[in-house]
């Protein structure tokens, strides 16, 4: 590795670089751009082909009353499907559910994931074993764990009732979790958090390795406690990873699907946008409407993510 062991004073490096940059602006910039395209294009072309091109087609079909049978005329309806979506109380309800799910699960996954990552980011005997154990929920299939959670929350004999009633005395009677909207979401959110903490832990672990250990030691010698060290040493270095995780989790939160489909099937007002969309498209064959729901959700998530991205960028620069 070319670590600058005998590095010249930083100032000289900077000025030398600036000189170089200025000179390079004419020729080097173009060379850099050409190289950049060589880096980006192989992947981007494939991405465009299998993601963006189908996405454009899906968008076009949201402007039609699309019939799935090949060769059957699909009338153009313009923005009708979008107007319908935003005046459809069931869709709006599903959005509310997704927002609640996201607001509950994202902070929990971040906090617990980060906490576990910090605990495991040190030379602790047995840490590999813990890393594996915490990752187990991530690798088990969504289908299997959704059915398992449904079972755990089953009203009478379920583990959830055993814990809430017999163990913690939080309720006097068994709770029928899946008969009310918000108790259903307790189960769904619990699954989301349970399955997600290992995932965010992993990314934070990867990010924490970039935090110089000697900085920690220096801070410790200066008398900084655990929280201070986290706040002033670890946090600044993982900020970028944190913003990535937040954005990905928010996207994932709005796109919650399999767990809801398998746990409640969307009954008792527990639809989320994707289960509602799935019903419209694959059950009722209203693909135009399903696509419109899909792009409405995309637009919403994009606005949220863009705001976050912009905000973290700004706070990182400060």
């Amino acid at each position: 590795m070319t670590a600058p062991t005998a590095a010249p004073p930083a100032v000289t490096v900077r000025s030398a670089l600036l000189r170089r940059r200025r000179g390079a602006a004419a020729g080097g910039g173009r060379r850099e751009a050409l190289a950049a395209y060589a880096f980006v294009l192989p992947g981007f072309i494939l991405y465009a082909l299998v993601m963006l091109y189908p996405a454009v087609q899906t968008f076009l079909l949201s402007l039609r009353d699309w019939k799935i049978t090949p060769g059957v005329d699909s009338p153009w309806v313009g923005l009708d499907n979008y107007i319908r979506a935003f005046s459809d109380p069931a869709f709006l309800d599903s959005l509310v559910n997704a927002v609640v799910y996201t607001l509950v699960t994202v902070p929990m996954q971040i906090v617990i994931g980060l906490f576990l990552a910090i605990l495991l980011d040190s030379k602790l005997p047995g840490r590999v074993a813990f890393r594996v154990l915490f990752y187990l929920p991530v690798v088990t299939s969504w289908v299997v764990v959704s059915l398992l959670f449904r079972y755990i929350f089953s009203s009478d004999e379920g583990l959830a009732n055993f814990v809430t009633v017999d163990l913690l005395h939080l309720a006097s009677d068994n709770v029928s979790w899946f008969q009310e909207r918000w108790t259903s979401f307790i189960a769904i959110c619990a699954l989301g958090i349970w399955k997600g903490v290992g995932w965010s832990m992993l990314i934070f672990l990867a990010a924490l390795t970039a935090v110089p250990k000697d900085l920690h030691e220096a801070a410790a010698i200066d008398g900084a406690g655990v929280f201070k060290r986290f706040r002033y040493v670890s946090l600044p270095s993982i900020r970028s990873a944190l913003s990535v995780v937040v954005i990905l989790l928010v996207i994932g939160g709005f796109n919650v699907f399999i767990s809801v489909l398998l746990i409640t099937g969307g009954t008792n007002d527990t639809q989320v946008p994707l289960t509602y969309m799935y019903d419209q498209a694959f059950q009722f064959l209203d693909f135009g409407y399903g696509s419109a729901i899909s792009f409405s959700l995309t637009a919403l998530v994009l606005v949220v993510s863009a705001a976050q991205y912009w905000w973290t960028r700004r706070s990182m620069r400060n």
């Binding site: 950049a36 991405y47 993601m51 963006l52 799935i68 699907f257 693909f287 993510s305 863009a306």
Partner: peptide, 26 residues
């Protein structure tokens, strides 16, 4: 640095937010 970087990166993010299930027929 290269021209079009912002657009391409935005397109990547856009792709992340599209529910892939709806892309399955195209």
């Amino acid at each position: 640095r290269f021209p079009g970087k912002r657009i391409l990166f935005t397109l990547i993010i856009v792709g992340l937010t599209i529910p892939t299930m709806m892309l399955i027929i195209p």
